[in-house]
Design a protein around this nucleic acid. Structure first.
Length: 584
RNA sequence: GCGCCCGUAGCUCAGCUGGAUAGAGCGUUGGCCUCCGGAGCCAAAGGUCAGAGGUUCGAAUCCUCUCGGGCGCGCCA
């Protein structure tokens, strides 16, 4: 509807341009929904924006624009108002036609081909596979999935990817932690390191290892601990754990160490994959950092930077001159000990993404990684790629509240709240919805009591209830021995003239605009907000009027309207990964 | 110290990239079930858009500074 007005305005502008009234026709034509019904249904500030360039008074230009506007049946009248706004009053039929549009498009209503099949990659969550996902990852998962689904809905070809950091030091700490627990299961008296992973899942992996390998990997604790630098609090816990890792590798040799490592990695990856699946988040690809390293891509990336002259050596390390590209300081690519950094892998990874032909790449990161953005963009620029093709979306933390109190979390002790626990406590639907209710830049206060509540306070239930209520009306219809004649309803849409009906029609017509805006701006909260408003319009209508009336045509028209409402609620909820139940 | 994000009703947040009289939900107060699900609806009260300057026809929105809150500033990942 909005785009129809834009077309009309463009034609009018072309006319004015030909007549020499306006010097140029702008690329985008702003059309907005009005807040105040007195201002019509849609408005444009075109005249205000072009007045200066045209050398005319805004109101005068608006009059000219109105006069040049081609006639259209859906536009009842056009008014010049205020400082120079052009207000459009649409014919009732224009809104009534939305019912037909929705019912004919069905699940496709709201979708578009705007993206033209262009390929976009969305990488999200990508948590280190060193433990179960916690509630912080949950927000990234819900948000990333919603952004991906929205982009896909507006016609992009979306590739969902999880970057598996299976090559770093954290993984070595995990593998070593597992092995130490394994030794304990073998009966060794182990002084578990301060910096090791403490969670119960480490015991579970160790037990699996023990089951499958018996005591084949047992070494006496005396031998393991011999001459290690002291652990905290007396010593340096970092030095201690590094020495311990080194000792594990030496004693186990490569093949056994790799076995422990892989058992741990696969156990946790399987767990994460299952967790996300149950959260309704499915990936197209799980991309391994180790595979990237093994392929030589990391060395190749470093080489490319060296050849283009953006690196130098200092203190035995190889540095990337990222400060030349806006980063606050230079970064190490290859350490003094010859090992490449995580950053080097990440450059190779992003190179790889672009090489795979994605037109745009989107990274969803936790806000604590924001300092990392300039250096990745710097690397892309240094490599001759356009950093503008990368969008990094930073998601702020979620803080859980229970009984009005902040829920304390500590990753270290293993007492964190996992995503799985959250799902169990409030359900997937509530979790998915709550996570995307706020802008991603906004800290999220996640009220667990509210998410569990089954009342109108809870926005998820409120929206789902609207859907279930429509379904209930149709069940009621059947119980009364009646049937819905859709065609009769569609033929009688002009009977939908009550203010509540007009309001509901207006909401339904907004849906495609909301989906488009939410997708392009990467803001699923717009959709969540919209669904609540649509549900309100429906509940209000429900209370004000009876649908199952004696007048056949009116009844069928109203039923068509609420059926369309049900469809839009379902379509919207699906994009957020929330179910649309027929009864609750 | 430097950088990024945030500051809007008592609370939690929207505000369509600069538009017309700043909006919701919760909470508070007062109403609505002989009727399709009361898991609902209606109404009222509630604001110096953190503060101060600036840009222009017009600012919650853009720029500068100040004050508050969060997060970063590793040869960790």
């Amino acid at each position: 509807m909005k785009s129809r007005l834009k077309i009309l305005l463009r034609e009018a502008l072309d006319t004015l341009h030909r007549d020499g009234v306006v010097p140029r026709v702008p690329g985008t034509i702003p059309v907005e929904r009005t807040r105040d019904p007195a201002h019509g249904d849609f408005a444009t500030n075109l005249a205000l924006a072009l007045a200066k360039a045209a050398g005319r008074k805004p109101r005068e230009l608006a009059e000219a624009l109105a006069a040049a506007l081609p006639a259209a049946p859906e536009v009842a009248r056009v008014e010049v108002a205020g400082p120079g706004f052009l207000n459009f009053f649409l014919a009732p039929a224009a809104f009534q036609a939305v019912v037909r549009e929705v019912l004919e498009a069905g699940r496709r209503y709201g979708r578009s081909e705007l993206g033209g099949g262009r390929r976009v990659q969305v990488e999200f969550v990508s948590a280190n596979p060193t433990g179960p996902l916690h509630v912080g990852h949950g927000r990234g998962a819900a948000y990333g999935a919603a952004v991906a689904d929205l982009l896909s809905a507006v016609g992009y070809e979306v590739h969902r990817e999880y970057y598996v950091n299976d090559a770093g030091r954290q993984m070595d700490i995990l593998a070593t932690s597992v092995w130490l627990r394994y030794l304990e299961l073998c009966g060794e008296e182990v002084a578990f390191p301060e910096n090791g992973y403490q969670g119960d899942y480490v015991w579970d992996i160790a037990a699996a290892l023990h089951r499958e390998n018996g005591e084949a990997m047992r070494k006496p604790w005396d031998e393991v601990a011999r001459n290690l630098p002291p652990d905290a609090p007396a010593g340096d816990k970092e030095a201690h754990i590094d020495a311990l890792i080194h000792r594990a590798r030496t004693l186990l040799r490569d093949d056994q160490y790799r076995l422990v490592f892989d058992v741990a990695l696969n156990y946790i990856l399987d767990d994460i994959r299952e967790d996300l699946e149950q959260f309704g988040v499915i990936y197209d690809e799980w991309f391994s950092e180790r595979a990237l390293v093994d392929s030589g891509a990391v060395l190749k990336a470093i080489e490319r930077l060296q050849k283009s002259g953006h690196t130098y050596e200092k203190d035995g390390a190889i540095w990337f001159r990222s400060s030349d590209f806006g980063d606050e300081k230079d970064r190490v690519l290859v350490r003094e000990n010859g090992q490449t950094t995580y950053f080097a892998s990440d450059i190779a990874y992003h190179m790889n993404k672009l090489e795979r032909g994605f037109e745009r790449i989107i990274d969803v990161w936790g806000a604590d990684h924001h300092g990392y953005v300039p250096r990745v963009k710097a690397a892309l620029e240094a490599l001759g790629d356009d950093p503008g093709r990368l969008d990094v979306l930073l998601v702020q933390f979620a803080v859980l509240y229970r009984g009005g109190q902040k829920v304390q979390m500590s990753t270290r002790s293993g007492e964190f709240v996992t995503l799985r626990q959250l799902r169990k406590e409030v359900g997937t639907d509530a979790a998915r919805f709550f996570y995307v209710m706020r802008r991603c830049e906004q800290h999220l206060d996640f009220d667990l009591d509210l998410a569990r509540k089954q009342s109108n306070d809870n926005p998820v239930y409120y929206v789902q209830y609207a859907h279930a209520r429509v379904c209930s009306v149709f069940r009621q219809l059947e119980e009364k021995g009646l049937a819905h004649h859709r065609d009769r309803g569609l033929a009688a849409l002009d009977r939908l003239t009550e203010s509540h009906e007009t309001e509901l029609l207006r909401e339904l017509s907004r849906f495609p605009e909301v989906v488009e805006s939410a997708a392009l701006q990467h803001e699923p909260h717009q959709l969540a907000q919209y669904l609540r408003e649509l549900a309100t319009a429906f509940h209000t209508y429900y209370n004000a009027h009876t649908f199952i009336v004696d007048d056949d045509a009116l009844r069928d028209a109203r039923l068509a309207l609420i059926d369309a409402t049900r469809q839009v609620l379902a379509n919207g909820l699906e994009l957020l990964g929330v179910s649309a139940p027929e009864r609750m």
